[in-house]
Write a protein that binds this DNA or RNA. Structure first.
Length: 435
RNA sequence: GGAGAGGUGGCUGAGUGGUUUAAGGCGCACGCCUGGAAAGCGUGAGUGGGCUCAUACCCCACCGGGGGUUCGAAUCCCCCCCUCUCCGCCA
């Protein structure tokens, strides 16, 4: 949510900034300003009348105390008329406010000044590259072939259980997934200073609104209902990312400045309906309805927000470095950024079997956009209440990391070598070919 | 799911229709006092919104949330949420 005061005071500038991003050019700024004006004029009049009524009621109380019943009754009749007008004005201002906030909730965040202008993914500047694609002395297999040969994933039975887009990890595959989760959590908690949290996987609608998933992307979520009781539908959702519950941990709170910075990491499965994406790259494990992810969340002061973002990207990159993977970091241009973000870095890992980069992490500073939506504030030592910056980043997504790992470290004999840092977790230095 | 008890400021705890601008206490900040402290005394302190150049005044709202009754609601009525105790069910 943008600051309504910013819209009032710098409407033209806001419109300009919004126009640089995808979906930002149809933001209904004028409508918001009009509703805001209507709200305030009704509110101001209502408040004046309420002040009148309050003092009149006090007088009536005094008259009653003095047993001047007739006089009191006369005043009552007077005030009753004011009451009707107040009811009407309250209705008008509440209506305008609801409408205003409904539209405000659909307006995306403003891009940070350092973000490159652009239309889409083709305009994303590359920030840095680590390593190089591995050269193979044999013809490398893609992850689907590898998973089938090594029985890491049973694609057919996964689909049999839940439909296409759902994976059944088996044997070494299941163990590798679990090893990766533990490896990531340990790395971020022990080496990078995050505290681990384990959130609910089913979350309230307000959490989705708080991080900006709703109302815009409601059709991308799985809604749950209790049994066949349709009246419970729409209240709870399967989380699309741990960002949704974890960023909301301190919603509606007023933190002390000394509590910042807050750094959380959390493992969770992520559920995505991927509505409209059916048939696009649905084979294998690159785009699925459920995948595991370790998420990083920070709540920090605005002064440190962007330094914390840079640090977060490095924390995510460390994962790929330790696993011996080739990757690049890109900066999403204005036209390619997500709804709630002011600045986003994506990390893409090289997958030899695909011959392409796969997005395994997206690190964003949402500035005060999410904090405002969830009413999370902190009190400065000077006593001022401010909205903190809220950052989120994948550290990292698992399914695609799994793909890059097995495709990159496959051996000529059909086995998959396990990078040294991961060995203690898998309790093995390779996934054997004959498994 | 059933029965009961609760939800008031940073904490505690009064308040069942009108000097309550939410008593009192604890804690907090500042000041006085003191060689310094404690005690004591005094002052101050919440959140959001409106008006505004103003973070100055003034005004409105806020006692879990939302409706209602009333000239006036923390207080009365209705619905919902949460916490606790017991029962049922259950990993």
């Amino acid at each position: 949510m943008l600051d309504i005061k910013l819209l009032r005071e710098k409407a033209d500038w806001v419109r300009e900034r919004l126009a640089t991003r995808h979906g930002g050019d149809d933001a209904r700024v004028n409508e918001v300003l009009d509703l805001d004006e209507r709200r305030r004029s009704a509110l101001t009049e209502a408040e004046q009348l309420k002040a009148q009524r309050n003092s009149a009621s006090k007088e009536i109380g005094a008259l009653m105390g003095q047993k001047k019943i007739a006089e009191a009754e006369a005043r009552k009749a007077e005030v009753r008329a004011i009451g009707d007008r107040i009811t009407e004005l309250d209705r008008l201002s509440a209506e305008a406010e609801t409408q205003r906030d409904l539209i405000m909730a659909m307006i995306p965040n403003l891009p940070h000044a350092s973000v490159a202008l652009g239309r889409d993914a083709a305009d994303n500047p590359e920030i840095r590259v680590h390593g190089a694609p591995r050269e193979f002395a044999f013809k490398p297999l893609n992850h689907i072939e590898l998973c089938e040969r090594l029985r890491l994933i049973d694609f057919a039975r996964g689909a049999k259980l839940s439909g296409s887009g759902f994976l059944l990890y088996t044997g070494w595959g299941a163990r590798l997934e679990r090893a990766l989760i533990n490896f990531l959590l340990d790395l971020h908690t022990h080496e990078h200073g995050y505290s681990e949290v384990a959130p609910p996987f089913i979350i309230g609608e307000h959490c989705m609104v708080g991080v900006g998933q709703f109302p815009k992307f409601r059709d991308q979520a799985y809604a749950v209902q209790e049994g066949l009781d349709a009246s419970t539908l729409g209240k709870l959702y399967l989380l699309p990312t741990a960002e949704a519950p974890v960023a909301n941990i301190h919603r509606e709170e007023l933190l002390a400045e000394a509590q910042l910075p807050i750094r959380y990491c959390a493992y969770s499965p992520c559920f995505r309906a991927e509505a409209g994406a059916a048939g696009v790259g649905t084979r294998g494990m690159i785009r699925v309805h459920q995948f595991d992810k370790v998420e990083l969340i920070k709540v920090v002061s605005p002064e440190t927000g962007y330094a914390e973002l840079e640090a977060m990207v490095l924390n995510a990159e460390k994962v790929l470095q330790l696993l011996g993977l080739h990757y690049r970091v890109i900066n999403l241009c204005t036209g390619d950024m997500g709804f709630a973000s002011s600045k986003t870095y994506d990390i893409e890992v090289w997958a030899p079997g695909q011959g392409s980069f796969l997005e395994v992490s997206s690190c964003s500073n949402t500035e005060d956009f999410q904090a405002r939506r969830m009413n999370l504030r902190y009190k400065t030592s000077a006593g001022e209440n401010r909205f903190p910056h809220i950052l989120n980043g994948s550290g990292t997504a698992l399914a695609r990391l799994f793909v890059a790992l097995v495709e990159t470290h496959q051996q000529a004999d059909g086995s998959v070598a396990i990078p040294e840092p991961l060995r203690p977790y898998l309790k093995a230095d390779c996934i054997p070919a004959g498994a």
